[in-house]
Design a protein around this nucleic acid. Sequence first.
DNA 1: GTCTATACCACGATAGAC
DNA 2: GTCTATCGTGGTATAGAC
Lengths: 242, 242
Amino acid sequence: MTLATPRLTPADTKTRILDAAEALFVAGGFDAMSMRQITTTASVNLAAVNYHFGSKDALIQAVLARQLDPLNEARLAVLGALEADLAERMTCEHVLVAMFLPAVRMSRSGAPNAERFLHFLGRAYTDPSPVVREFIDTHYLETLGRFFFAFQRTLPELSRDDLGFRLNFAMGALSGILAGGNTQRLIHDFTQGQGDQEVTLLSRLISLMVAALKAPLPGPDDTTVLDAIVRMPAVGSLAPEV
Amino acid sequence: MTLATPRLTPADTKTRILDAAEALFVAGGFDAMSMRQITTTASVNLAAVNYHFGSKDALIQAVLARQLDPLNEARLAVLGALEADLAERMTCEHVLVAMFLPAVRMSRSGAPNAERFLHFLGRAYTDPSPVVREFIDTHYLETLGRFFFAFQRTLPELSRDDLGFRLNFAMGALSGILAGGNTQRLIHDFTQGQGDQEVTLLSRLISLMVAALKAPLPGPDDTTVLDAIVRMPAVGSLAPEV
DNA sequence: GTCTATACCACGATAGAC
DNA sequence: GTCTATCGTGGTATAGAC
């Protein structure tokens, strides 16, 4: 754990660059922050970023890691604690709580920039730049593997492929919610929520996740019904055009 | 309907630019296609793009519109046909079929580049560039308003806000699936599927969508259960760190 | 109206002096 | 460690030929 030393002396170059980059990232995303903007804001030379981090890509990865690594650690800690406590009594709801609660917790902690944390998180998860996307995906993969196991234990009736399909579905859905125009409202709900609201939003999200995870596999009947729809005259008569 | 005239004379500059841009877009996405690449491939001058389209952004929008506008028209046509045929007997499964079937149909049509259509669609829905994203969102909004109405009629028990929340969830989920590493596999399933496979994948997708749309609202009981989880010693004792 | 040649400015990156 | 100067490439703007 890094001590948040509130020293009065100016931070060193590396930290100043990280802070400036983080602020500009939250404000406008990866593409909007230019090296010249970053170095000007941090009051360092243009070449300093390349010297300390190697490239703009490596810089943003350092910025992301500084915030997201503790988050993933917290997720794993909650998951581990729940598993130690409940063992076989775990449900997928517990796993979902382990996934979502730490972010909410962090945004309410007394730490500096706590209220900016969800802003940062929203940016990180929705930023269009490939560098950011790849970092998120990679760093998720480590944690996701662990959670995948946990989900598998609570949802033994699902095959490995099917669980992967549904998790992909559910996580994509969460990203979609964050990416949509509701982000501001969601963050507002998050930050404003004291206890009750926090739990309310969590339960709302989780109930949708659970529905997607526990939905019955489409049986032959469903296929037949769907087939009937597809072959309806009203649908089938429409010639496809490209 | 535009006639797919296979003229032997070289296409005019505008069309050549559109074709070249589309090919490069499918191959590598928006960022990877440079103006100089496009104009070289199309054998036109660098400034021709700016003359005919105004900017690179406007060009990609024209490329997207040429392919996606017919798709949206087909979606609306299927929806209208189903509504005319079924009236009050419509279910949300019918609406979902109207949403997803046209894309599958188009990819199987005899039109040129039909098999490339889902590749193109995958790119369009997952390209990280803000220009592409904004275009997709905007052009969806028109169609989505119409579909929102249709969903509302088949799911009267959901409030307007709640339906919006869940549709956002479901559509984000679909994008997530397309955006994930499964895209190639999904496309493979799509293209290879003759009838049966096509219906199978559709039914699989739709069953998840239906589950998310029809999931019961979390009642007081669920909130209490969740609250109990959140306040468990194992969870609550973990101090948040940022 | 169309098309071409060319100039412009901002970007990220890097070599080399200090 | 830090700085300046500079390179290559990106999208864009315009003057002028046809």
